[in-house]
């Protein structure tokens, strides 16, 4: 399960491997940037004060989830429709 897609990898192939998406709960997020600082491929951005994620660049390394002080981030499985499509 650790052989996830790499940033810059071919997207269609990577998408087939992607088993999770990074979910941001904006009602909890403080825009503090704690997650941005530890994101190795820089797929998390604070644009102004809004945290955004580039799912295509995310490698699901989970570092942002571990450091979020307010538990606003989670890796979630896409629903079964996406899995089978």
């Amino acid at each position: 399960m650790f052989r996830r897609f790499r940033p810059g990898a071919d997207r269609p192939a990577a998408a087939a491997l992607a088993t999770v998406l990074l979910d941001i709960d904006h009602s909890l997020c403080h825009s503090c940037g704690a997650c941005v600082a530890v994101c190795p491929p820089v797929c998390l951005h604070l644009i102004g004060l809004t945290l955004t994620v580039n799912q295509d660049a995310c490698t699901a390394c989970n570092r942002c989830v571990l450091v979020c002080p307010v538990q606003a981030l989670a890796l979630i499985a896409p629903d079964s429709v996406q899995m089978t499509s």
């Binding site: 503090c32 940037g33 704690a34 941005v36 600082a37 530890v38 994101c39 190795p40 820089v42 951005h45 604070l46």
Partner: peptide
């Protein structure tokens, strides 16, 4: 700040 985007854009390694 800790989330410095400028340093990253400049190509510096900032991930603790």
């Amino acid at each position: 700040g800790v989330e410095s985007q400028v340093a990253r854009w400049a190509g510096l390694k900032t991930n603790p």
